[in-house]
Design a protein around this nucleic acid. Structure first.
Lengths: 146, 146
DNA sequence: AGTGCCGGTCTCAAAAAGAGACCAGCACTA
DNA sequence: TAGTGCTGGTCTCTTTTTGAGACCGGCACT
């Protein structure tokens, strides 16, 4: 079993075969996931899943996003077919963003991750603290910080 | 109903109240999701969900990742408690990465999104094509490209 | 001796993101 | 009538993140 670690002869062929089986590079899933992996995409999707919002509403709802990224992320989400952009010819022309059917469908799958995060953020935070602590211990070799 | 568009008096207070309700900025879910929203995080999680891999194996499995990002992303995932890093004292010291229980748990939720992507990438691609086509039509006003 | 693989780190260039000014048009205020 | 604020964006500049690739020490095989 452990021979795979020692015996390195012509491993590349083996990996190529495995890659074809696991097709991580080719598969279109990557293409879809990359669209959602942006820093703000998931957040905006979560917001729009609640209800439709206008541009300025979203900006206020997520204070630490810049207009530039808000515009761009919304545009990307619209391009991927997740959100719908409607311009209302009101006095100050207002723009409303809402989820499409595709967007709602996608969010239905994404929601699981959100729920998991809600339930397990303590564990993640604990893991982070443990990792950082161990790192500090390794580097500084001191259990007690100043 | 539409008065919300016209009547703009002191809307900020209203939004603040809404923000408190929807708590999109504060909630720790963001903190967790951001860790997964990296370009490579989800891909590496998917790979490690199959089976444990060594550093070089992952590099070959995902050809278009740089060592730097591979190291960094794996380190981030390890810090968040999703993956476990084991160093084997073999002759060329080898390092194996595997999913922790927390990682497997998280991937169980993430998997839904992966499955959705697999099923709906056609729709997403179609939406993209439609969006790009409409954009070209708007700008170039020409239906037939050269 | 020379070469290659091991898992990383280091540096440098390019790309992406953040901060903030600026735009045109209309309503309300002074 | 001038001034102010709000609308949804775009433009520029700076900072952060990413990508590409050189480099490291140590051992095995040639």
């Amino acid at each position: 079993m452990d021979s795979r670690i020692v015996n390195l002869k012509s491993k590349l062929d083996v990996y190529k075969a495995m890659t074809d089986g696991g097709n991580l590079s080719d598969c279109p899933v990557r293409d879809v996931i990359q669209g959602l992996s942006g820093k703000w995409s998931s957040l905006l999707m979560a917001a729009l899943a609640e209800q439709p919002y206008r541009f300025g509403e979203l900006r206020r709802l997520v204070p630490d996003i810049s207009q530039r990224m808000l515009t761009q992320t919304l545009c990307d989400l619209q391009r991927d077919g997740y959100v719908c952009r409607e311009v209302f010819p009101t006095k100050p022309p207002s723009v409303e963003y809402s989820l499409t059917d595709l967007g709602r469908s996608m969010f239905g799958a994404f929601r699981h991750l959100l729920e998991w995060a809600e339930l397990n953020h303590d564990a993640v935070r604990a893991a982070r603290a443990g990792f950082d602590g161990a790192l500090a211990g390794t580097v500084g070799k001191a259990g007690t910080a100043a």
